[in-house]
Amino acid sequence: MVPVLLISFIPLVRGIYIGFTDYELGGQISFSGLENYRIMLQDRFFWRSMGVGFLWTTVVTALQISLGLILALLLNQGLRWTSLYSVLMLVPWAMPPIVRGLMWRQIYSPDTGALNLILTQMGLIDAPINWLTSFEWAIPAIIVAGVWGEIPKAALFFLAGLKTIPGSLYEAAELDGASAFRQFRHITLPMMKPIMAAVVSLSFMWNFNAFGLIWILTQGGPGGLTRLPMLAAYEEAFRYGYVGYAAAIGNVMVIIISLFLFFYLRVQLKERTS
């Protein structure tokens, strides 16, 4: 309890408080009420970062869930070497976001990156593309890197969920002549619903808070196109010195994340009660 208070609760409360002050680097802290939030309403840089944040979070979460589920279904088929695949699958997730970022930056490099090399040799592009600084490609590029690292986590959760579905249900369905798709739709999906809700909520929270990977890949560029909310808060505090305003952005993020946490807890509670 005491470590939780010291490490989590006190900084959280202080952070929330700073979001209601006009604290700037080098200056004094004084309470400013809702002034930061009034500024936020008119700050197009903030709204733009929220827009990018929701786009990134939605697409990455959706792809993680779908691809994670496909991967889990494949691993649940009782193939040979399943244990080995399961361990290998965890490698991307085990890598810290910074390392993942460095790896993808190298892959995307216009001069020495593997992606340009492969595409050029296949004749799909004439000249190397600067994926991370191109206005057309920067968002897809970070999404691919984000999804790649997080699929294993979703797959692992889903695999655990699939293992809990009684085989007798599938056997009965087969006897009734249900196709594989119908079995998936009427047995797998409903049985996986609680775990899916949990994975969606948690992934949304993690992705909405993404920082390290994007910072290494694009630093929010080009032209602020990939400036996620966490990057925006970081820049406000460390680049421009508006600590109070940065904390206010953090507070708004906490509220958004709390909504998903509430959704997650509700599903968990429902599952336990049933």
């Binding site: 560029g221 080009p222 421009y240």
Partner: peptide, 12 residues
């Protein structure tokens, strides 16, 4: 916040 992003848009 202003100059670099706008120049990036222009040169792109």
């Amino acid at each position: 916040r202003v100059a670099n992003p706008i120049f990036q848009e222009f040169f792109s």
